[in-house]
């Protein structure tokens, strides 16, 4: 069936099988490979994208379910003004090692900051508790999200 999904501000129309997963529509259909596939069993969260602003696992949603909806992937975080505060903070705070989980972590961080401009350590850890990182031990990820929140607040564009 034909679907149109707005990904990062651009409509992507395709004729897809109902069984196509949203993550495949993003990676293969739209060619946006920043969204990763990890466990493929709803356990790791690396395929996280924002659907109408809400973080969900794109391996556990059908592409047809996203018809007419807006999806933000890591490629959509950057704006004309430059990197999103979470992207800058992950770079500054070294919030990654191998980088595989990083797109998902940054999207969850961005969604959290939208709702809660000054999250506590516990609130950040709670928000990212569905996202696995096998490298960092999470310390710098938490630091980066908090630094991003502080930067976004001081820019007045959280």
């Amino acid at each position: 069936m034909e679907i149109t999904v707005n990904i990062n501000g651009t409509d992507h129309t395709a004729d897809v099988e109902p069984r196509l997963l949203l993550v495949d529509h993003i990676r293969t259909g739209a060619g946006l490979t920043g969204t990763h596939i990890g466990c493929d069993t709803t356990s790791c969260g690396v395929c996280t994208v924002l659907v109408d602003g809400t973080p969900v696992k794109s391996c556990t949603m059908l592409a047809v379910q996203a018809d007419g909806r807006s999806v933000t992937t890591v490629e959509g975080l950057k704006s004309a003004d430059g990197l999103h505060p979470v992207q800058q903070a992950f770079s500054d705070e070294h919030g990654l090692q191998c980088g595989f989980c990083t797109p998902a972590m940054m999207l969850v961080g961005a969604a959290l900051i939208d709702e809660n401009p000054a999250p506590s350590d516990d609130e950040v850890r709670w928000a990212i508790s569905g996202n696995l990182c096998r490298c960092t031990g999470y310390m710098n990820i938490v630091k980066a999200i908090q630094a991003a929140a502080a930067a976004a607040s001081s820019n007045g564009d959280s």
Partner: peptide, 9 residues
């Protein structure tokens, strides 16, 4: 219930 991402859907 499960994790925050699963709880959203």
């Amino acid at each position: 219930i499960s994790d925050p991402l699963v709880r959203n859907l």
